[in-house]
Write a protein that binds this DNA or RNA. Sequence first.
DNA 1: CACTTGACCTGTCCGC
DNA 2: TGCGGACAGGTCAAGT
Length: 293
Amino acid sequence: MPELPEVETVRIGLQGFLPGKVVKAVHHDWPKSFPNAPADVEQFLIGARILEVKRRAKVLLIELNTKYSLVIHLKMTGQLVYRGEHERFGAGHPNDSLVHDLPDKTTHVHFDFTDGSHLFFNDQRKFGWVRLLPTVEVPNLDFFLKVGPEPLSDDFTDKDFIQRLMRRKRSNIKAVLLDQTVIAGIGNIYADEGLWAAKIHPETHVEDVPTAKLKKLYTELRAVLKLSIEKGGSTDRNYVNAEGKKGSYMSFAKVFRREGKPCPRCGTTIIKTRVAGRGTHLCPHCQPKPYID
DNA sequence: CACTTGACCTGTCCGC
DNA sequence: TGCGGACAGGTCAAGT
């Protein structure tokens, strides 16, 4: 899916559009995309006014004035696209838009607001979901009980980072970065980018990485996440922001999806391998494979 | 306990 | 042009 920077970009966009909107109707065509009790939808969603759009890890939270919230996970291919009253169909969307007329065949949930605007949840692979839950119950979702700290929060220090990584010191560092219970929000793109920046091979066991490099990884990961938010996230395939537009971080990526191209630091050809069950990009010169006996 | 694999889905790309 | 297989930004469950 969208990882932290993409979800945050969507959040910022939606926060500009949605507060104050009143839900008039909701449509859905795939039960797993919107698994809710119809009675709750009728009572706590229809007629509800949107207060605020928040994010925790890779999950979006749309708070309503009914003490309920829409909880949304985009997973791999989810999109949340806002359209104003007369923008639902139509021509004239800019070239950087992946989404044209809506709803389309990937739209599995959409909301109509009383002012004529709409919010579309599109999801090609149908892994994502929208759930309506009492706001006080959101933190008690299994995922939120277990999820790690936000890597960009002010009180998240390099000491916290290293301490949490060391809880799985015998594991491959890439697998640990992808584990949402260790640190929230990092996925395949930013794991690869961060490990390249800190010159760590993704198969290195956490305990074998020198502390100085772990500190470097902390700094670089935060920097790459921040840069990507500034660039509106990464569009590799499906990702678009709340306006249906692509992000531009991919053109700044150093290794992700750049196999066969030169490493920007040393010129060595970037390779793609498999680590922790995921496609993994690295520079074999800057990130030498650890010696394993 | 930690790692791997499969499942959830659809679409695209690549080799034959 | 068609077909089969691998693969795609994420998580969860089950198996080893």
